[in-house]
């Protein structure tokens, strides 16, 4: 009896998984060798990191505020309203902050990398770079992957901080707490075991967004439609990957005893 038949669909899935892995592998082999494109790297860090700040700050603020207002009624039922800052702090730092920020990042940066490289591919600009002896993998891909990998953790930490500030305002809507008391409570609930795995996984989120965006753009099909598909599938795939990495991260942290 056949338990598993290969249809066109899952053949393609397996093929694509293989190609993306190869692409990521090429980043470590080719992208890490000199010559390094520092100037382009800085430009990309600016575009990818700095330009995402307003969006990430806004979503972070709302996330903290809303989470606080949603949690309060449940905590009142159990009579632990005073635990609100700890609860919010833990959920933001461990899970909500990294994942929401990464998803926003995938939507903004993943799609723009996919579309940019896709249209460069379609109009032969990548080929032009290649024949003029400039390695497009180093110049375009490696710089973008490094930037997303480095910028997302920074953005996440900032988003966490702004979310906690939003939460402080949320607490003050219904009761009065001083700024220092609120943050003392938040940090009482947190220790390094909460922070470390959360920050480490954001490096992987950022790496995934960069690799998928570049892969999709680099392998874009001809035509305007190809570019659209590249941008779209970059967002979809990197969002799914973020959840898969999150799932793996929580399992690993659990095994290492970091979740207690």
């Amino acid at each position: 009896m056949k338990l598993w038949t290969l249809t066109e669909g899952n053949k393609e899935f397996i093929n694509e998984t293989g190609s993306i892995t190869k692409f990521a592998n090429r980043f470590f082999i080719v992208g890490m060798k000199p010559r390094y494109e520092f100037k382009e790297l800085l430009t990309q860090c600016y575009l990818i990191g700095y330009k995402s700040l307003p969006l990430v700050a806004l979503t972070g603020f709302i996330m903290g505020l809303v989470l606080t207002m949603q949690l309060r009624p449940s905590l009142i039922v159990y009579g632990v309203e005073s635990q609100l800052p700890e609860m919010v702090g833990i959920s933001i730092v461990r899970e909500v902050g990294p994942v929401i920020t990464a998803l926003i990042f995938a939507g903004k940066i993943g799609s723009s990398i996919g579309a940019e490289l896709g249209s460069m591919k379609v109009t032969e600009q990548i080929d032009a770079m290649e024949v003029s002896g400039i390695n497009p993998f180093k110049f375009l891909v490696a710089t973008r992957i490094i930037s997303t990998t480095l910028m997302l953790p920074i953005l996440t930490v900032l988003a966490d901080a702004i979310a906690l500030f939003g939460s402080y305002i949320g607490v003050n809507i219904n009761s009065v707490t001083s700024f220092s008391l609120f943050f003392t409570q938040v940090f009482q609930g947190l220790d390094l075991n909460d922070l470390l795995p959360a920050v480490i996984k954001t490096f992987f989120f950022g790496f995934a967004v960069g690799v998928v965006g570049c892969y999709k753009g680099f392998n874009s099909n001809k035509g305007t439609k190809g570019v659209g598909i590249a941008a779209n599938s970059a967002v979809v795939l990197s969002s799914v990957l973020i959840f898969i990495i999150d799932l793996l991260a929580v399992q690993i942290a659990d095994l290492m005893g970091l979740n207690y």
Binding site: K33, Q125, A128, V131, S132, G133
Partner: peptide
């Protein structure tokens, strides 16, 4: 190899039919 090819290509010029200017 990839970097040898890059080096060789510095000795070549290529005009694309589609121009391929960096837009």
């Amino acid at each position: 190899k990839e970097d040898e090819l890059d080096l060789l290509r510095t000795k070549l010029g290529f005009l694309f039919q589609s121009n391929a200017l960096y837009d």
